[in-house]
């Protein structure tokens, strides 16, 4: 594995695009870490993720010295929302990847390891979930569970585990025939021990890489759910919600069609750069993983 990482790094270094991706991610990592310094929460605020509101007026205000990025409708400060929204995006990405990976590894591992009707059953289940357009399924899950970030995470995990399960299953099928597994079995190790100590640890690296590089796509989907009104509560620092707040303002005021450009362009750019970072990195990694290009 260490060799693989070394090779990957070598590969990365030669690609300016992937370096740019790394740079973007590092900046977002910094913004997330330094959020309390970059955008100070109000002293009496109970939850720093709630964007401070400067009045109740419905019309957004353009960027100025007081609000660097302007305000959205109902005067939520965009700069604050963007900075703290970085944390939200990262946490959604990490949580979804973690949960869906855990489920995927478990299902795929068990299916591949035991085979037979059990395998058949689990794989048909993945077929069913994959046959539904993932947006529809995700929307239904969030609607049923009620809007909120936790349920967004749940919904996205619910639609993304099957592909991981398939990947893991494929690898488990080959790994379980390998010598060290057979050796462990000959030594009398139990099923669970073999599965979790020998088979899974040796089958999950590809899926780990694939899944973590999906973080960008996950954040996009989460933002899309927010856009449909299924995301964070009103006023919570979440990029998708900031964009959906701009929906009524894209045609501007009479006589000045671009009056409220900032309400959509600024949060849109934030999501774009974040996802771009992941995708630039992912693109390079996919090359490394693609056996046809070795």
């Amino acid at each position: 594995m260490r060799d693989a990482l070394k090779a990957a790094w070598k590969n990365l270094r030669r690609k300016p695009l992937s370096l740019a991706g790394l740079g973007l991610l590092a900046s977002f990592g910094f913004i997330a870490a330094a959020a309390p310094l970059l955008a100070r929460p109000a002293p009496n605020s109970r939850d720093p993720y709630l964007i401070p509101q400067d009045g109740y007026s419905s019309d957004p205000r353009r960027p100025d010295a007081r609000h660097w990025f302007g305000t959205t409708e109902q005067q939520y400060d965009l700069y604050y929302g963007i900075v703290w929204g970085t944390r939200t995006a990262l946490s959604i990405g990490v949580k979804v990847v973690f949960v869906s990976l855990a489920v995927g590894i478990l299902v795929g591992g068990l299916a591949g390891f035991y085979g037979g009707w059990f395998d058949e059953l689990l794989m048909r289940l993945t077929d069913v979930v994959m046959a539904l357009p993932s947006v529809i399924l995700a929307v239904v899950v969030v609607t049923v569970r009620g809007p909120g970030l936790d349920n967004v995470v749940l919904a996205l995990a619910a639609v993304s585990w099957p592909s991981y399960a398939r990947l893991v299953r494929g690898d488990v099928l080959t790994v379980k025939e390998r010598e060290f597994v057979l050796a462990a079995r000959a030594l009398g190790a139990g099923d669970m021990r073999i599965l979790f100590r020998h088979v899974i640890p040796n089958s999950i690296y590809p899926v780990l890489v694939v899944a973590s590089l999906n973080t960008g796509a996950v954040v996009l989907s989460a933002a899309a759910l927010s856009f449909l009104g299924l995301g964070a509560p009103v006023g919570y620092a979440d990029w998708g919600q900031l964009i959906s707040m701009s929906r009524n303002w894209i045609l501007g005021a009479s006589g000045s069609p671009l009056a409220y450009w900032h309400t959509v362009v600024i949060p849109g750019t934030a999501i774009f750069l974040f996802v771009l970072g992941w995708n630039l990195l992912g693109d390079a990694f996919r090359d490394i993983l693609d056996p046809r290009q070795r």
């Binding site: 501007g252 362009v265 849109g268 693109d283």
Partner: peptide
Amino acid sequence: RFISITGYSLPSFALGLILLMVFYG
């Protein structure tokens, strides 16, 4: 690749809204 990756990284709704802003508004 950069062109295609940027497209892939764009939130479709933000892109859509911006396009509407310019080409409709």
